[in-house]
């Protein structure tokens, strides 16, 4: 690797010498800067375009057709799909509103709990790594499995506990009403996501210089002051990362939604991703589904850009 880098640095000299030595245009072409870049980045670009870019442009095309996803011919309808979505599909707006509410609550809770866990588990505790593992564990399980497990817990387990303890919390009709289904989704997604964010926050906390904290202790700062005035400003880059991750996670949530509530009761917990899925595959309106996905793509990009810009501006350079 070192040799390689050195050789690239020496490039102009080498090129000249190779010209003198061999003079062959083919060889010069092979060793040219352009060829090297194409060689190293080319495969990545190739796979990126096959897996992401080309399907994306196909998607743009399909969003302007009335294709049903099965038949051989897709009829061009121009921007009709978009006008249908904005004018005649209140459910899409509702699912957008649900997703926004859900994202707000879940992102805040995820980050607060993730940070609190990280802060507590950065303290010198005996069973620290064991506890960290336990909190991280839910993240290892896939969202689908998790959703089905929690569905069982909420629908079968909670009433059982409710019968024994008579606590009203467990006797609620879990997943049966709008509110319980909403909070069930929040509980499970926080349970799943907080552990992951905790790991990132722990890494961020480990990078806070000890001497700064020591100096502040000598100056007489309390625990809360240290947290507020030293630790949090210094881990703002980590906060940026965590917010970015959790926003894009929860905004695009599908598997948990699918397995835990499948949008129910009566479509009140239908996320945008799920609405798109149902439109394309349930209603056989693939063109309309892709158009929705495109709108969703623009929205997600916009929101994450704003978020990154906002938190970046609060980061402190050391």
């Amino acid at each position: 690797m070192d040799n390689n880098r050195a050789s690239i640095n020496m490039h102009p000299v080498l090129e000249r010498s190779s010209k003198l030595e061999r003079g062959s245009t083919v060889k010069r072409w092979i060793s040219s800067q352009w060829m090297q870049q194409a060689f190293f980045i080319g495969p990545a670009i190739l796979f990126y375009s096959i897996v992401i870019a080309i399907p994306f442009f196909f998607g743009i095309y399909y969003s302007m057709t009335s294709w049903d996803g099965v038949s051989g011919n897709a009829v061009w309808v121009g921007l009709n799909n978009f006008s249908t979505i904005f004018l005649k599909d209140p459910e899409f707006g509702q699912s957008f509103w649900f997703t926004t509410r859900f994202t707000l609550t879940a992102v805040i809770l995820n980050n607060v709990i993730g940070f609190a866990l990280a802060y507590l588990l950065s303290l010198p505790l005996k069973s620290r790594s064991a506890i960290r593992t336990i909190f991280f564990l839910p993240n290892v399980l896939g969202g689908l499995v998790l959703g089905f497990i929690w569905q069982f817990i909420l629908v079968q387990g909670f009433p059982g506990i409710g019968k024994l303890t008579n606590l009203s919390f467990f006797n609620l009709p879990w997943l049966g009403t709008e509110a319980t289904a909403y909070w069930a989704l929040i509980i499970v997604s926080v349970w799943q996501g907080a552990g992951y964010l905790m790991v990132i926050y722990i890494a961020g906390l480990a990078n806070v210089p000890k001497d700064l904290i020591e100096a502040s202790v000598i100056d007489g700062a309390g625990k809360w002051q240290i947290l507020k005035n030293i630790i949090i400003p210094l881990i703002m880059p980590t906060v940026t990362v965590c917010l970015f991750i959790s926003i894009s996670w929860t905004f695009k949530m599908f598997d948990l939604n699918y397995s835990l509530t499948s949008g129910g009761p009566y479509g009140s917990t239908e996320s945008v991703a799920m609405n798109i899925y149902n439109e394309a595959f349930g209603n056989n309106r693939y063109g309309l589904g892709t158009a929705k996905a495109l709108i969703f793509f623009v929205a997600v990009t916009f929101i994450t850009l704003i978020q990154v810009k906002l938190t970046k501006s609060r980061e402190v350079e050391m």
Partner: peptide, 20 residues
């Protein structure tokens, strides 16, 4: 019936039985 109708019909019925 139109494809996908039964899901929406069912959701409307769920809404009704929930008293909404």
């Amino acid at each position: 019936m139109p494809e996908g109708l039964y899901t929406e019909i069912a959701q409307s019925m769920q809404k009704y039985v929930a008293g909404k």
